[in-house]
């Protein structure tokens, strides 16, 4: 298990936990990022927000938040 930001770009991982505040976790869930879902990291520079693909949609997620999304790589 590791933070989303540790993934290689273009690799897939399953979300295991979202350690946001209460509001943030619920909002991410509503948008389709919740434990169990498979996400693809599309872009993750050295700083700034990352781009994540989950289901059919794509999200920009701030770095601070992305670090609190724990994932497990899948192949």
């Amino acid at each position: 298990m590791m933070p989303l930001t540790f993934l290689q770009p273009d690799s897939m991982a399953r979300v295991t936990a979202v350690q946001g505040g209460r509001g943030a976790t619920a909002r991410l869930a509503a948008m389709g990022i919740y434990p169990g879902v498979v996400v693809t990291l599309k872009r993750c520079g050295a700083g700034g927000p990352v781009i994540v693909q989950a289901g059919g949609s794509r999200f920009g997620i701030g770095r601070g938040m992305a670090r609190r999304i724990m994932v497990k790589p899948v192949d």
Partner: peptide, 10 residues
């Protein structure tokens, strides 16, 4: 600041 989460529509 609140965390940034935003959908990037196709």
């Amino acid at each position: 600041t609140a965390p940034f989460v935003m959908e990037l529509p196709p």
